[in-house]
């Protein structure tokens, strides 16, 4: 079912729940990985994904059908992830660097972790980035998102996003080469 059809079905009382189930099935994996790249723990990522879909359930009725659904979903998931990270920082009373270190340790604790594999070095390198650069890099590199769409998700100009992505990619390559 196309996104527009799902939104229309959601707005009808008789097909609301079925449309929502289809939407969850279609986007759960993509949104989960988007969240998980920002929040390394599976349990935390699962909580954030739950909250994201609850927001979708509450807001989809008022969603304008001329907007792009997946951009809206990414926007909610991004905001939920950032709120969660902000809460974590406040709760632990740590600064960005300390939280980054804790997240890096969380990556190293993964059952599949292999320090020699480039994919894991890439994960550790992304951890070193500031939140905004991390987001921009993930959306472009892993989710193949166009700058124009990213601009709608992050409320940032295309020029600023391009600059951010370039800085992030260079930093990551540098990190991988040195580790």
């Amino acid at each position: 079912m196309e996104d527009v059809e799902m939104v229309t079905a959601f707005k009808k009382a008789g097909t609301k729940e079925n449309a929502f189930t289809l939407l969850v099935k279609k986007y759960q994996e993509r949104l989960y990985w988007h969240i998980r790249r920002l929040i390394p723990s599976h349990e935390d990522a699962n909580d954030v994904l739950q909250n994201t879909f609850i927001k979708v359930w509450n807001g989809l009725g008022a969603f304008r059908e001329d907007s792009q659904l997946y951009t809206w979903l990414y926007r909610i998931a991004t905001n939920e992830s950032l709120s969660f990270m902000e809460q974590q920082k406040r709760k632990a009373a740590v600064d960005f660097d300390q939280l980054g270190e804790a997240y890096s340790n969380s990556i190293k604790a993964d059952a599949n972790f292999d320090a020699n594999r480039l994919e894991w070095k890439l994960q550790l390198a992304i951890r070193q980035l500031p939140d905004k650069q991390k987001l921009v890099f993930n959306l472009r590199y892993f989710d193949n998102m166009a700058y124009e769409e990213m601009s709608r998700v992050l409320d940032t100009s295309v020029g600023a996003l391009k600059a951010s992505y370039h800085h992030a990619a260079k930093k990551i390559e540098e990190f991988i080469k040195n580790h």
Partner: peptide, 10 residues
């Protein structure tokens, strides 16, 4: 970065 797999590893 072009040569690295984009598949999730976690």
């Amino acid at each position: 970065l072009k040569s690295i797999s984009r598949l999730p590893v976690q």
